[in-house]
Write a protein that binds this DNA or RNA. Structure first.
Length: 632
DNA sequence: GTAGGGTTAG
């Protein structure tokens, strides 16, 4: 190795000397030597040649130099070329100026790139587009848009490159109003059917939560490729429209769409949402069969899919097998452990992580919420202090929310109030909601009343808040207040998202809504539910009527409770799975107290393990005991 | 010479 290196350096020295010699021979112009050095990647020597040539350097030499700098992403060398141009009073033509600018942009020197652009006496569409692209690829969307507008003001019309680029800076609700204007420009310039512009356009709509518009653009495109298809599938998945994403994927796959690792990563996001383990495993084996190279993004998606489907072991297996991990890989694994209530394992993994790379804000969210779900209060507070004091990462709203949850869970109600008072943020509805839940569990009616009032000021439309407050009053025997709260609830609340539970059996997703009568096996499910109700009541189950939002008599309340979607799904799972298998049910909202209790009795009486995933965490119920320790 | 889709948290 050493020998080879010294040989190489000898050769290059010899070459340098020969080029000096060649300078004296006018029939072998030095610039051809400079160009061949560039072609061979020997940038340093080429720069030496450039210095020797002085003001003799011509366009084609500068072009070669910049090309090689671009190849090597060599910022310093590029700067030397730039300085040389200035000193030689060489005014680069548009083409060369643009490429110099691109070099700066690709090397993350946006300011230098912008200076080049501003200093150019003449610019064409490529110059503008390249600079806009530099901004948008580095997330400087405001700058990208501002430059785009300035370009339009000069009277220049965008081409398909400009449009595809600028649309990526219009994502999110903030950029949407610009995105819409760009769309009309797309129509005006007749690029509506262009595949790149179309993909950007549909992605812009999807990211602004306008999935119907995105779908319209997709359906109108005369041709599609892997990017277009992935963009629309991922659009559905990112909005939580998982069934739609899966359905569209299946349709396009049957039609012969091309897939790559990004398509699979996006599809896995949808499958995670659906807890569709069978499909997820199918995608996993498909990626293995296709011998897709190692892609961190895909592996990250697999970790997420397996842990959201309740298969932590598989998630961990993927994580452990990765030759290279990003902060997202670690975060995905930490979130998985945390949602399963495995606080100790979260802390252990967090420790290993810090030995390898720097955690980010999401890491701390995962660790704090992992401590919260795992009941590790003091450890969680230590993590928050660590974040405050040692990481140079400022805790954000979500981190403060985790601490509120952490303290509330431990019953340190007064401490939560102090914590909220000292926060650099206004408390959110989620924080008050979390504290209200804590007041109910720890039977603190006085603070509960105060908290509920704050909450109802911010969120008067959320029926759940009234219910918890009335529960607190009921527990304290304040019946008049119970009536008063129920009355005001009727006036102000709006329908919340309806509860929905589902389970996957034989690659079919069986979905249940509250009081669902639509399932083909509804009679059998009703009969089974009645039967198991008798059995678990004998074992001590008492329906918790306080979970019913409506003001009806007790008999009707019990009927309503029995109609909760998770009870239907659990019953169906009991009928449809083999005796040894775990019953896995997913719910879109948080599981209610009564259903949680119901599930525990079912697990005890029928000797079955249940894994319930709600919007917050997993409840692993074995032998009548839940991993959440009855606090969630 | 300039262009589109992606994984974690809430």
């Amino acid at each position: 190795m050493l020998v080879r290196r010294s040989l190489r350096s000898l050769c290059s020295k010899a070459n340098g000397l020969s080029s000096l010699a060649r300078q004296t021979k006018p029939q072998h112009p030095a610039d051809s030597n400079l160009k061949s050095l560039c072609l061979n990647g020997r940038l340093k020597e080429a720069l030496f040649e450039m210095a020797v040539l002085g003001t003799e350097v011509k366009f084609s030499c500068y072009d070669s130099l910049i090309t090689e700098c671009l190849n090597q992403r060599a910022l310093r060398e590029g700067q030397r070329v730039h300085v040389h141009m200035i000193k030689s009073r060489y005014l680069p033509p548009v083409y060369l100026g643009t490429r110099l600018m691109i070099l700066y942009a690709k090397c993350d020197s946006l300011e230098d790139a912008r200076n080049v652009l501003d200093g150019m006496p003449e610019r064409n569409i490529v110059s503008w587009t390249a600079m806009i692209s530099g901004y948008s690829q580095r997330g400087c969307h405001a700058e990208a848009l501002e430059l785009f507008i300035r370009m339009l003001q000069t009277g220049l019309l965008p081409n398909e490159f400009t449009l595809a680029t600028v649309l990526t800076s219009c994502s999110g609700p903030h950029g949407f109003k610009h995105g819409r204007q760009v769309h009309s420009l797309v129509v005006k310039t007749n690029f509506e059917s262009h595949i790149f512009v179309g993909s950007s356009l549909l992605d812009m709509y999807a990211k602004a939560d306008k999935i119907h518009e995105a779908r319209t653009v997709f359906d109108m495109l005369p041709e599609r490729d892997v990017v277009t298809c992935t963009a629309i599938i991922s659009g559905y998945a990112q909005l939580g429209l998982d069934e739609e994403a899966l359905e569209l994927f299946r349709k396009l796959y049957e039609e012969g769409m091309e897939c790559n690792y990004i398509t699979f990563a996006s599809l896995l996001t949808a499958l995670s949402g659906l807890s569709a383990l069978d499909y997820g495993r199918q995608v996993h084996s498909l990626t293995i069969r296709r011998e897709l190279p190692f892609y961190v993004v895909l592996q990250n998606s697999l970790i997420n899919m397996y842990s959201k489907c309740g298969c932590l072991i598989y998630a961990r297996r993927v994580f452990d097998s990765m030759p290279e991990r990003t902060v997202i890989s670690w975060n995905a694994m930490l979130v998985g452990l945390g949602k399963h209530g495995l606080g100790r394992q979260v802390l252990q993994l967090f420790k290993s992580m810090r030995e390898e790379l720097k955690p980010d804000g999401v890491t701390f969210m995962a660790v704090l919420s992992g401590c919260s779900h795992g009941g590790l209060v003091d450890e969680g507070l230590d993590v928050f202090d660590y974040m405050l004091n040692e990481q140079g990462l400022k805790p954000e709203l979500g981190h403060y929310g985790c601490v509120v949850d952490l303290l509330g869970r431990a019953g340190r109600i007064e401490k939560v109030l102090d914590f909220i008072k000292d926060m650099p943020f206004e408390p959110t509805a989620a924080m008050w909601g979390s504290l209200l839940g804590a007041c109910r569990v720890h039977a603190n009616a006085s603070v509960g009343e105060f908290v509920a009032q704050r909450l109802l000021e911010i969120e008067p439309e959320n029926a759940g808040n009234y219910v918890i407050l009335s529960n607190i009053y009921a527990a304290a025997g304040r019946w008049e207040d119970v009536v008063r709260v129920r009355e005001s609830m009727k006036e102000k609340t709006v329908m919340k998202e309806p509860g929905r539970s589902w389970l996957n059996l034989d690659r079919i997703i069986h979905t249940f809504h509250s009081s669902d009568r639509s399932h083909p096996q509804k009679e059998a499910i009703d009969a089974k539910l009645k039967e198991l109700c008798v059995k678990i009541k004998e074992a001590g189950y008492v329906p918790d009527l306080s979970c019913v939002l409506h003001d009806v008599d007790d008999e009707q309340k019990e009927r309503m409770l029995l109609g909760h979607s998770e009870k239907l799904a659990i019953t169906f799972g009991l009928m449809g799975t083999s005796r040894s298998g775990m019953i896995r049910v997913t719910k879109n909202l948080r599981i209610c107290v009564d259903c949680h209790n119901f599930a525990k009795f079912v697990s005890k009486v029928y000797g079955r393990d249940l894994s319930l995933r709600d919007s917050n965490r997993f409840h692993l119920i074995v032998g009548g005991v839940c991993s959440c320790r009855d606090y969630w």
